[in-house]
Structures are given as C-alpha cells and as structure tokens.
Amino acid sequence: MSALPPPAMLDITCLRHVRPWGGDPVDIAMDAGIITAVTPAGSAPIGVREFDGRGLLALPGIVNAHAHVDKSWWGLPWQSYGGEGTTEGRIRHERAEREALGIPSLERSAHVLREFVRHGTTAIRTHVDVDTGVGLRGIEAVEEAAAAYEGALDVRIVAFPQDGVLRRPGVLDSLRDAATRPSVDAIGGLDPATIDRDPVGQIDAITALAADTGVGVDIHLHDPAELGAFQVELLVDRASRLGLRDRVNIAHGFAVAQLAPSHRRDLLAAMAEVGVTMTTVAPLRLPQLPLAELDAAGVRFAFGTDGIRDLWSPYGTGDTLGIAWQYARAAGLVRDEDLLRVVRLATTAGAWAVGRDQHDLVEGARADVVLVDAENPMDALVRVPERALVVGGGRVLHVA
C-alpha cells in the first residue's frame, strides 16, 4: 500500500452549533486561519462555507508533543518484530532494516501524518533521525510531507541523534546543519550516560550547539532514578548558564517519577526555575509522571504518541487523546477536575510544544478545532470517540 494523499482541504467560514468544552452551543466564525468570533448559536452572519456541528463537543486541535513520523512502516504489509529487545539492540535492528522499508521517505511520513490528522491532531512536534546513515534525508522527507498541508497542519521538527551524539563522528556536524533549517525547532539527545557513556560530554555538546544556533534541546532520557536525575540536574545547570530558559525539554524522564518525594520536589523546583519542560508517552508498567506535583511546581507538561508501528514496536494508533486516556488510567485519575486537566494537556496546555502562547476556542486563536460526539471533555477522554471533524488553520482536514 502507498501513503494516503493529503485531504482535499476546504476553507470554512463558520462552525455552527458546537459546544466548546461542553458549554452552551455557539457559532465559531473564522477567516484566514484565525477564529474571528465566538457567538451564541444562530447569531453569526450567514456565510458561504459553513459546517453544521449538530451540537457536538468542540475541543481545540490535539497537540502531539512527541512523535517520530519518519520511522513508521505503517502503510506497508505487517512487519514482524525482530532484533534484540534492548535500546542498543533496537538501534542496530533499525539501522539494518530501515532502508529496505523505505525509512525514511516521503511515503512513510505522509501516511503517519494522515493518521495523526484523522485522530484530531493539528500540531505536531516530531523527532526525526539524523545520523551517519540517513544524514538529513529524514528531515527532508518530513518537510515535504508536511508541505502538502500548506500550513493547515503545524509540524515542528527535532533533529534527533537516535544512534548517539559523541560515539559516531560526524553526528554533531549533522545536527548543526539541521539546526539551520527553518523547520527545525530543536536538536535532540539520547541517554547520555548509557548511549554515549559520557553524560557531561553529550549534554555539554548539545546545549552548546543549541545556544550557538538559537534552537532548543529536546532530549530522550530513559535512565532511571538517581542516574537519570543527575542528567536532569546537568540539563538544568546548562540551561541556566547558557541562556536556554524555556528551550529545554526532557522526553520520557522516567527518573522523575522514581525519585524520593523530597528529591523530586527539589528537582521539579529547579526545572521550573529555568523553564525545563517534560513530555510523556504514558508508558505502561512504569510509574507515571506526577501531574499534581508537576502543576504545583510549574513544570509544563504534554503528551505524545512516540513511534508507532515501527521497527521498535508494532503498537500505536497515532491518537494522542488515546495516550492521554492511557496516562489518566495508569495514574488512577478519576475526578472531573483531573480528567479535564488531562484533556487540556492534550490540547490547550500542551501547545507550548509547538511554540504557541494561545491555543483555544477563543477569538484571535488559530482556527484548530476538533468535533466529537461526547457530552463533555471528561466523557471524550474516557471513551476516546471517533473524531467527527478536524479543522486545522481554518481548513477541513478530516470528516468522518
């Protein structure tokens, strides 16, 4: 099977009779990709390109803050899991098998983007592999796949050194080249202690490069407990000393959930002081990042799908709302205020990951809207219903 083409996108001028966040029915008028008015249902002037929302629940477009759109085999025949189950084993297996599957390529990335859109995602922060084998080909493929949406889908790229930073000569040079591309918001890193075996060296290298080029840092950090916390502390220190405030994100960060409460409290306070953020894919069988403690400390937080149907794992649907459900269920969240907070993290409160200060169903915001058949946001989270309509930048991207 080939990649699905981008949708035939249609600009609309008004969504009629929708219920933002489960409130009273309204009309949402939009122009040039921006919400221009939110008025009681039936009060907006009659336009030429309207959509009747039939009283459906309206949410802001879903934000996928941690994806890998370059790595999936989705759209090809089923690929059986192979190789060794360690991080090193998965890296070797991927390097050996990816070219035969067209990874990376326009076709593979386009298919993943289409699935994300179908699940209501309108903004994506995706890690894209940069190494001595693929160079910048993955970034070029993702750029081309995103360009087909003509700005209606917001795609930000993290140049990601999946095979390590220091142990492969030339990777730092490739990251520097990637950082000059307009599509690249950040450079990545990966387990400095266990992959490069040099936590200070890797963290110094990527933070110095980010400071020099003006991009951010978004590092995969799986190392547990005190080892992981030590690397978080290094990142906080470098963010402070190199002027990287609000430009460092820690993906996964399992260590934060594994620390003693007093150590975690101090670490979160230090992270908040320099604006270090976190993203999670809500992994099963591991403690979840503590939402109440993150909020209390002021550490911004968001959800992502990680890799889906790739050479690392056959799992994944591309539904970030499903990841939010997984997080809430695994964390034992049941009260309305907590469930609502999780939905906001998947939408409004997660928009920092794509550089937005405002992302909501309000006048002046980008016209990213998702309609679902649900009573309220909590109902939408626990049932994860089909997305009835997806609008990105005022253009229809998907209709169920």
Results as ranks from 00 to 15, higher is better:
G82T: 14
G316D: 08
A400Q: 13
E233S: 14
T132L: 11
L76M: 05
A331D: 03
G188R: 01
D131V: 08
V236E: 03
E84T: 07
A272F: 08
A367P: 01
R387Y: 02
T36C: 11
L339D: 06
A328M: 06
E99V: 08
D373P: 00
L175R: 03
A367R: 00
V354R: 00
L190Y: 12
G133S: 09
D218E: 09
A3G: 15
H220G: 13
D191E: 09
L259D: 04
D11T: 13
P20G: 10
V391E: 10
D177H: 09
I157C: 11
A229N: 00
D198C: 12
Q162G: 02
Q231T: 10
C14F: 07
A260D: 14
L389A: 12
T180N: 07
A148H: 08
V158E: 04
R247I: 04
D368Q: 06
D310F: 07
L397H: 07
R90Y: 06
A282G: 09
D11I: 10
D196G: 11
T194D: 13
I34T: 14
I62D: 05
A229E: 08
G135E: 04
Y315Q: 00
A255Q: 04
V256F: 10
V281N: 13
L166D: 07
T213Y: 05
E273D: 15
E94L: 13
H66W: 03
E337L: 10
L333I: 12
S174E: 14
I124Q: 00
V399G: 03
T121M: 01
T194V: 03
V134A: 09
Y81T: 12
L339W: 06
D218P: 04
